[in-house]
């Protein structure tokens, strides 16, 4: 049996399959359906220092092979997470990684500091790429300078594993990834959702209350895969790939393109057990093709011209 363990900096995952923030709640929502302990990690719902009500309904529109969302980081704030959620999930035998959001450098830092104090949160994912909040969020993630500023500030106060989640809504994602790496990020995860729109032709109005929203699901996979491949050639830190993964073949594609681990997002909504099927599929693939460790797949794409 091939070894499935992978490292994201100092963080050890029992396998490369994790669930994406915003699609898996706090893990407890899914524990009725699957043994979540089998996952390499759970990226829990985006958290901000202050509570946020999120955007008004309607927040979701199904599109061809995908969906748009405009949730807008609804969450009850870092203190609520610490008091009410953390005690329930801290002892799960998997890595719980908090997706940290802010609207200013100070608010990112404040939230990251609170998470640093939690013994059983070994890593954070710095979300500089949420397309659904007006202030902050994606504003930092669309320029190399903004990325550098926020990563530098958080790196100063956050000693554990720092993953930076990148936006695809940029001209050159590798510039942003390099900026994060240069400021000490341990890893980058990509991609967040692509900015999109849907219109109700009967009402002649946008479907989403926010007019635009983030596109995810199988339709974004080729774009995400291309960006992972480009980023793999640009940085040395490990990459966590995500965007439209819905089966083990998709996951293996991301690994071959250069990802060390992957996240599953929208597909959790369709099949709560999809992540476990992906783990099993990767295992069989490695065994069948004689890979002794799953990490041998990372960047093993063969290009002959």
């Amino acid at each position: 049996m091939a070894e499935l363990k992978v490292n994201i900096g100092k963080l050890l995952l029992k396998n490369p399959v994790t669930t994406a923030s915003g699609t898996f709640g706090y893990g407890t929502e899914y524990s009725d359906f699957i043994p979540v302990e089998r996952l390499g990690g759970i990226f829990v719902k985006g958290t901000t220092i202050e509570p946020r009500e999120g955007n008004p309904y309607p927040r979701m529109a199904e599109t061809s092979a995908g969906m748009l969302n405009a949730v807008g980081l609804q969450n009850k704030g870092a203190d609520y997470f610490i008091q009410a959620i953390y005690p329930k999930i801290k002892d799960l035998d998997t890595n719980i990684i908090v997706n940290v959001n802010g609207s200013s450098i100070d608010s990112y830092v404040a939230c990251a500091e609170k998470m640093a104090a939690l013994e059983l949160i070994p890593a954070i994912e710095l979300n500089i790429s949420c397309p659904n909040v007006k202030e902050g969020g994606m504003l930092f993630g669309v320029t190399a300078r903004g990325t550098a500023e926020v990563v530098r500030a958080v790196r100063k106060i956050y000693p554990k594993v720092l993953i930076v989640k990148l936006s695809p809504n940029v001209t050159d994602i590798t510039e942003i990834a390099r900026a994060a790496e240069a400021e000490g990020a341990d890893s980058v995860s990509l991609i967040n959702t692509l900015l999109g729109m849907a219109i109700d032709v009967h009402k002649r109005k946008p479907v989403l209350s926010t007019l635009t929203g983030g596109l995810s699901g199988p339709c974004v996979k080729p774009v995400a895969l291309r960006m992972v491949w480009q980023t793999y050639k640009a940085v040395k830190i490990p990459i966590i790939g995500l965007g439209g993964i819905s089966n083990w073949q998709d996951a293996v594609e991301f690994l071959l393109a250069g990802a060390t681990a992957i996240q599953i997002g929208t597909s959790n909504f369709i099949d709560p057990a999809v992540s476990l099927k992906v783990i099993d599929g990767i295992q069989s693939y490695c065994d069948e093709f004689g890979f002794k460790t799953v990490s041998e797949l990372t960047g093993a794409l063969e290009i002959t011209i």
Binding site: G22, T23, F24, G25, E29, Y30, D32, F33, K45, G54, Y57, R59, M60, M67, N69, V71, Q74, T266, N268, F269, P272
Partner: peptide, 10 residues
């Protein structure tokens, strides 16, 4: 979308 309280869409 999810039906189980994870996505916060509804």
């Amino acid at each position: 979308a999810c039906g189980i309280g994870a996505c916060l869409c509804c």
